Amino acid sequence: MTHIADDYDSDLDLVFERTVELHPEQIWAAWTQPAHVVHWFTPAPWKTLSCDIDLRPGGVFRTVMCSPEGQQHPHVGCYLEIVENRRLVWTDALGPGYGPAANPFITAYITLEPEGGGTRYHARARHKNSEDMLRHVDMGFERGWGLALDQMVAYMKALKTQ
């Protein structure tokens, strides 16, 4: 099966990959249910205040993040590809219904592959140009996406024990 942007581009793409002790279905739920997203999506000390999801191609993926200083940062995009429990692609280059965005930054590709008793979690952030990609590196891409994934794993494991 061919997916959007299967070819890695070192001038535009940042990649984060790790094997985690969650099943693909748990990670899928964490990514696709707003009640879960708000608990892990933004690396602490940032917070995700709200999330809206319309899980279909062209459907909205909207979050409002809050900095430690209290500044709110809304992000709005839409889904491009949805393969349940395996692949999720969304972008802020387009808004809901594929409307063009004024200031695009990222297209995200989340791929989940069962591995042992867990999942190989592969995330790719594609940027519109190398300047934006380097800005994302400077923002702490790898550390931030790693912290967010750690938060997701802890949150989903805690749900399982309740």
Rank of each mutant, 00 (worst) to 15 (best):
M65W: 09
T42G: 10
E115R: 15
A125S: 15
P74T: 14
A154I: 03
A154R: 12
H136K: 01
L149S: 07
R143Q: 15
A93S: 13
T107Q: 14
C51R: 07
T161H: 08
F16K: 09
E21T: 06
F16M: 02
A30M: 00
L147G: 11
G116W: 07
R135W: 12
L80V: 02
R124Y: 03
T91Q: 00
A158W: 02
L159D: 10
S10N: 09
Y8H: 10
V37R: 07
Y109V: 15
D132C: 03
F105G: 10
T119N: 03
R86W: 01
T107N: 08
I27R: 01
K157H: 05
G144A: 15
P114L: 04
F16G: 06
P43N: 03
E17P: 06
Y121N: 01
Y155M: 05
V38W: 04
L159P: 09
F105Q: 12
V38E: 03
D138H: 13
I110P: 02
D54M: 06
L159V: 02
A35I: 10
G116V: 02
W31A: 04
Y121M: 00
A123M: 15
D52F: 01
W46F: 13
E84N: 02
C51D: 01
E113H: 06
G118Q: 02
F61Y: 14
A154M: 02
I53F: 05
E115D: 12
W90I: 08
M152L: 14
S67M: 08
D13H: 06
S10M: 12
T42I: 08
D54T: 12
N129Y: 08
G97C: 12
L94Q: 15
D6L: 01
E113W: 00
V89K: 08
I110G: 02
A101E: 05
D132W: 08
W28Q: 00
I106P: 00
L159Y: 06
N129K: 11
T107S: 13
N103Y: 11
E81M: 07
A101W: 04
Q151R: 01
D13Y: 07
I82Q: 04
P74K: 13
A125D: 12
G116F: 06
D11R: 15
R126C: 02
P43G: 02
Q162C: 11
A154H: 07
Y109M: 13
G97D: 10
Q162Y: 12
T48M: 07
P114G: 04
